[in-house]
Amino acid sequence: MIRIKKVDNRPLTLLERLYFTEVAAGMLVTLRHFFRNLFKPSNIVTVSYPEERLPLPGNARLRTRHRLKVRADGTPKCVACYMCQTACPAYCIDITAAEYNDGNPAEKYPRGFDIDLSRCVMCGMCVEACPEDAIAMDTGDIPGGALTREELMMDKRELLRNLPGEPSLLGASTRLHNEWDRKVKKK
């Protein structure tokens, strides 16, 4: 819908052209804000960011710091397929693949999984690309400034840390692995 705002283009009256009354009227507005905020600072809308934070919208499209999900037995869901590393436009993911030697049908796992947050553009392409639902950007942690580059380098241990709760069943290899895992444990 198009809304039309009518602008009153009448010529200024003499009183308005003298400025002084109009300046005084403007100062009334600003002074009202000044004294209100001086005596009642709760009206100030500023959020002092690192100390106070607004709650993030609990939205599926929210993109915050990455994490790697785990299976029911605590192994990473990642199968080191390099899809995310290939999709990443900022070249910030570095995966070192390794193989399971115990008959695990997932076959591969990442020995190293590094994300360089100083390069990451938080685009979420890695999450989109992942066929196993292994990488997520739902930690609610917004990567900010750091005093050294090393603080912004996340390795596999860091990515697997502070996981939310339940293991996910999504992804073909996860299902295979979980079935195999149950069989192995029964024996």
């Binding site: 804000h33 009206n43 809308v45 002092s48």
Partner: peptide, 13 residues
């Protein structure tokens, strides 16, 4: 500080 208070901000702190 004055400009911040007039614009509902906190100013340098």
């Amino acid at each position: 500080k004055v400009s911040a208070l007039m614009q509902d901000r906190v100013g340098p702190n």
